[in-house]
């Protein structure tokens, strides 16, 4: 594994974020906590992409916001280029924001409606003094060109652009201060398929050109497979499986990853009904099941799964799984490895 020797741009260590829910009540009772993030760790190398995958409520968006300290973490550390983001003072943090940027999901709410496209892109440059007032317009025009917008559109307002074009503006704004890391929080989920492909290609081209690293948050496994080098699968605030793209897509170990992969509808009518359909809903995050959090929906759950929380175990130097039975499970019922699952599913009605 060559990339493991490179210096990581981003190091995340045991990151935890708890939200207090409900009012405290008159006598301090009744307050509950949601563990939106519970001990998340990973690193991202220069010019690489890690994808954070999971369904709604798994904590992936909270992770993105906490990495940038748009939310204050409860504990843990985030280091960007070796500097601790979590402990930075307000003024140090403001300066550090030059190095880390974010692109949001909904291009209709992520751009200030009363600023022109040029103002939106120029604002971070002027703030961090990357460009002087004189040259800023040139720089904006160059960025417009880079993200595939025409210079004559510079003085238009966001509402005059289509969804895809707005996402290009948001990307230009993120790139304006030459960050080393961009958190992409579902950047293409709100777009049509054909536009989605344009934006994904743009993001990969920009990475090749500028060497920026991405934390790519998404629920779409197809997009993730296309864009990422490494993937972390989250379930109820925890990483349940993490590995390189090849490991995760060809040899998925965790039953949840396997179910997620098999649940994606394929554009191929002959694929029908090869799915693992998970029973039930995501449990209430206020009271996750004891032991393994996935145990309430897992087809293979045994007694130990309901009692003891599995820790991330190394299946290979870069592949980690949090399941008591990953060795017995094989990968996706042996679809790729030819090794059949040795653990029978205990499906009960």
């Amino acid at each position: 594994m060559i990339e493991r020797h490179e210096t990581p741009v981003l190091e995340v260590e045991d990151l935890t974020k708890h939200f207090a829910v409900g009012s405290r009540g008159l006598f301090g009772r009744g307050k509950q906590t949601v563990k939106a993030l519970d001990g998340v760790s990973f690193t991202v190398s220069k010019g690489k992409t890690i994808a954070i995958v999971g369904e709604s409520g798994c904590g992936k968006s909270t992770l993105g916001r906490t990495l940038l300290r748009l939310e204050q973490p409860t504990s843990g550390q985030v280091r960007l280029d070796g500097i601790d983001v979590t402990a930075a003072s307000a003024s140090v943090l403001r300066a550090m924001r030059r190095k880390m940027q974010i692109v949001f999901q909904d291009p209709f709410s992520s751009l200030h409606p009363k600023m022109t496209a040029a103002q939106l892109v120029a604002e971070p440059m002027l703030l961090h003094k990357v460009a002087t007032k004189k040259e800023v317009r040139h720089r904006v025009a160059a960025l417009f060109d880079l993200v595939g917008l025409a210079p004559y559109q510079m003085d238009r307002y966001p509402h005059q652009f289509s969804g895809g074009q707005r996402q290009r503006i948001a990307i230009a704004r993120a790139l304006a201060v030459e960050p080393s890391l961009i958190v992409c929080d579902e950047p293409v989920s709100a777009l049509d398929v054909s536009i989605q492909a344009q934006i994904i290609n743009l993001l990969t081209d920009l990475q090749a050109k500028l060497g920026v690293s991405y934390v790519f948050i998404s629920h779409d496994l197809g997009v993730v497979r296309y864009i990422s080098d490494e993937i972390a699968v989250m379930y109820l605030g925890r990483v349940v499986e993490q590995g390189t793209k090849r490991e995760l897509f060809s040899y998925p170990r965790h039953p949840y990853t396997q179910a997620l992969l098999s649940a994606v509808p394929r554009p191929d009518p002959s694929y029908r009904s090869q799915r693992i359909v998970l029973k039930g809903d995501l449990p209430n995050p206020l009271s996750p099941p004891p032991g393994c959090r996935f145990s309430s929906r897992c087809g293979y759950a045994r007694d130990i799964c309901h009692q003891q929380e599995p820790q991330l175990d190394a299946a290979s130097p870069s592949h980690r799984v949090a399941c008591h039975f990953w060795k017995q499970l094989g990968s996706l019922s042996g679809r790729d490895t030819g090794v059949p699952a040795t653990l029978p599913a205990n499906r009960s009605e």
């Binding site: 289509s162 398929v193 054909s194 536009i195 492909a197 197809g222 497979r225 897509f249 994606v264």
Partner: peptide, 24 residues
């Protein structure tokens, strides 16, 4: 064809997506 070409697939790696240029 364009719609299918711009869809990233879960099975197998792709060289590059082929988006349809422009908008509806």
């Amino acid at each position: 064809q364009g719609l299918l070409g711009s869809m990233p697939t879960v099975d197998g790696d792709q060289e590059r997506l082929q988006p349809i240029p422009g908008t509806v």
